[in-house]
Structure formats: structure tokens, C-alpha cells
Design a binder for these strands. Sequence first.
DNA 1: AGGAATAGTGTAAAATATACACTAGGCTCC
DNA 2: GGAGCCTAGTGTATATTTTACACTATTCCT
Lengths: 245, 245
Amino acid sequence: MTDFNEYFKSAFTVDNVIFGFDEGDLKVLLMKRGEEPYKDKFALPGYFVNPNEDLDAAAKRVLEQLTGLRNVFLEQVKTFGTVDRHPAGRVITIAYFSLIKISHFTLQPASIAESVQWRSISEVRGLSFDHDEILSACFDRLKWLVRTRPVGFELLPRKFTLTELQHLYEAILETKLDKRNFRKKILSMDLLIDLDETQEGVAHRPARLYQFDRNKYEQFLSEGFSFELKENKKKNKKGKEESVA
Amino acid sequence: MTDFNEYFKSAFTVDNVIFGFDEGDLKVLLMKRGEEPYKDKFALPGYFVNPNEDLDAAAKRVLEQLTGLRNVFLEQVKTFGTVDRHPAGRVITIAYFSLIKISHFTLQPASIAESVQWRSISEVRGLSFDHDEILSACFDRLKWLVRTRPVGFELLPRKFTLTELQHLYEAILETKLDKRNFRKKILSMDLLIDLDETQEGVAHRPARLYQFDRNKYEQFLSEGFSFELKENKKKNKKGKEESVA
DNA sequence: AGGAATAGTGTAAAATATACACTAGGCTCC
DNA sequence: GGAGCCTAGTGTATATTTTACACTATTCCT
């Protein structure tokens, strides 16, 4: 008979790739670890899953401890379990990613971390454990998701302009989009509420403000609808447009 | 200081949804469990991950023990970790799915199972643990994948007819496809080798045989190409077509 | 009033997706 | 060996979607 006890000596953690969008740039929340291993190094926010805690609950807990936010977009992505990925023993980690409105809160250093900070996704490298790999898997997932479901709005303030929305998509998809086609497509989906307000305090023509229509979206979902977005086919030569017709 | 030992009392398993295609029907490989819990009940093939074994390796091992097959399509899907999903303690499971050519082998009952058998996906219900849920997550993934990457071929014999391929897609997507449009689309992808052979031993006009061109596919991949398939938009009223022009 | 800066807008051409029915070819059985 | 059975195989016109592309409008600032 097999000795099952040998199997019950592992642990698992959740790691959370928290995306935010600010100043036209896609950012990730990192924490400086307060504990060994990798003390004082940067890592994705994460911690052990408690013995009587569901995985999703653990991911939520980590997120809340760090940001104070509840009810944000959070989804499981992939599990990483290489034998020697953790120095303390066999520890596999379930990676989650979440999307938050960066402007909605100020960071609160939690017990699990010495400090937390936002970093541009393009600059992040050299994280602890296998977190570089985890980040990249989550980023790929975000890229896919953003074309498939209107989750972009989770990253923007409640009121936003179409240009902001476009910049968000461009940051995530790492491509340039055509302004006219983008607006046409987005508006044709009929998921935005035109607030009949405009930006204030900008030194140029102020843009209209929109809001995501969550109700209509849920209605569409229940009717079986699919959201899709494609990038330009021609490699984008940014800036240039037609030369006088 | 936290007592980390408390965390190292968990185990994890891999569970594998093994898809096959036979007689126009999408099938799943199930095993009758030889051990408690759920002894003599049906479950997805799976087992504990050994302490010094990577997750992917464990999934491969389970698959090979059961089918004798190596080098088949195998991909991680999702991790299930509800606190009380396993009676023996805290056991989370990493779900994988694989695609195999059902005709390529005969089943070999392994030590981990009393018996194994193929079941039509539409008939499977009431599996052990949370395996119904796992199966459904993997089926959803397959549906998505089949529209995104040409993985259908993994489920067919090396030589197949276009009608067989169409039936496979119909079984997976649970929809009817238009014969002419399907053929046009598939052939236009230029991923099939026309073998210049025909079926034998059929009581009607024999169909041409094709083979998947893996080399060309890999070439396309490296050039950044995307495979896509869509179902009919009009709900399919099967059988009916134009009334004499 | 002029300049700077971004918002906002339309159309024609190309590519893709869709709907749809009959002919072709091999087999079988009288 | 012809009739009938069965599935293979094929083309076109229309609708929809995607793409490329440049200038005018509005506000602020000086």
C-alpha cells in the first residue's frame, strides 16, 4: 500500500499580478519582500494559502491586504510548480491577475511586504522566484482577454475619454490603433454611456467623457455575444497618415 | 514569527481530461478508481504529483501509464482547490487536457485504475470529486483552442478526409458547419497535404485523403500567423438548403 | 487674434463571411 | 449492366467587416 503521507508535505501559494494603468502606461504592482527567501528583493504580491482557505479567497485576501480593494477583477491564470522553484521546500504557486483602477486608492504597505510600488511593465525584470515567467504568462492572458471581453474599463476611472481608452488598448496590445476605426468599433458595440460632459482643466479642446455600461454588457452576455478587437494589419508606422490628397 | 510548517501539509494531484474522437463523437477517457476514496466510481485519470516531480511531468506520467502514449498534445488548464474537495485532506488538483488519436492504441488498464474506458462527452455525468466541473472547464478550453490553433488534427488519424475533419469540428463546437464554406476555409489555410489517395472499402464514392502539414504550420507560427474558425451565424436548421434555383 | 494642442469625423476599396443546390463517382444489388 | 444509393465535391453572388486615410472643430493660452 502506498504511503500517502509522503504526499502531504507540500505547500502552495498564490501570486497576484496586479495591473494598473496610469500616464498612458501599463503598470504592475510589486512588493519588496520582508521575509526570506529573497528578502528585500522585488516580487509579485503573494503568500501562502491557508489550510482552510479556498484558492480564490487567498488571492482576494492578498489583494485586499495590499490595496484595501475588494470586488475587483481577479482571475486565475496558471499554476507554476517546478520542483525547485522555492528554496523552502515543495511549493507550487497559483498565479492570478487582477485589474484595478490605479487612481482609486493609495497603497498601503502591508505586513507581508516592506514596501509596494507600481512599475511600468516594460521595466520589470529580475523578480524573485519564477515571477518573471509568471508575469509574462499573465500579461499574455491580459492581451488575449482584452480582445475578447471588455475588461479594459476595469483599469480606467469611471469616467474616461475615448482617447484614454485607446491609449489603454495600445499599451496592452503593444501596438498602434487607428483612431477613427477604433472609435467606430468601440461605439458600435454600444457599451458606452455618453455622459454629455467634457474634460476640465486641459489646455486644448476638451474631450467627451464616457462611462462603461455594465448593465448593457451583462444583458449582451446573457444573450450570447462576443466582444472582439483586432489590431491594424499593416505594421504601424506611427504618426504618419495620408499625405495631402 | 509565522510557523511555516503549518503550510507544508498539503498535497496536489494532476487530473487529465483525455479527449479522443471516434465514430463522429467526441469522447473522454475515464477510469474506474481502484482506491479509496470513491473506489469503483468513475473519475478523470489523475494521481498525486511526486515530491520531486514537475507538474507537467506528472501529467505526462499519468497519461503514459494509462495509454502508453508519449509526445501527445498536453496542456495545463486550471487548478481546482476548494478546501474540502478531497476527503483525505487538503489536496488541490491541476487539470490538464490532452488530445490523442483514439485509433492509435488499445487501452492498458494501469495500476492506478481498475479499468479505463471511453465515454461520449455528452453522456458523462456524476464523476468523483469535482471532476464534472474540471471536465467542463477543459471542454471549454478545447472549444476555444480549436478555433485558435489547428489542434484538431491531433484527434484524427494521420490520413483523414475533409468530411471527417468537419465532423470533428462540429462535435467539438457543438454546431453544424456549412460544407462548402468549411472546405474553402480549411483549404485556403494551406495546412493540408493532399495525399492523392482515396478511401477504401466504403460503399459510396470514396473521399480524398489529406494529412496535416506540421512543417508548414510551424513555419506559419514563426511568421506570426493566426488560425481562426467561426461557426455559422444563422442558427442551423440542418438538412435544408436552397429550393431549386 | 493667432498659435498650440487634441478632439472629432466619413467614405471608398478590399477582404472576408455567408447563403445556398446540384453534379460526380463509386458501390451494390437486382 | 443499369438503377438506385450514398457521400464527395464544387462556385457564385451578396452582405458584412475591415481597412486606409486627412482634414475641420473646439478650447486654452498668450
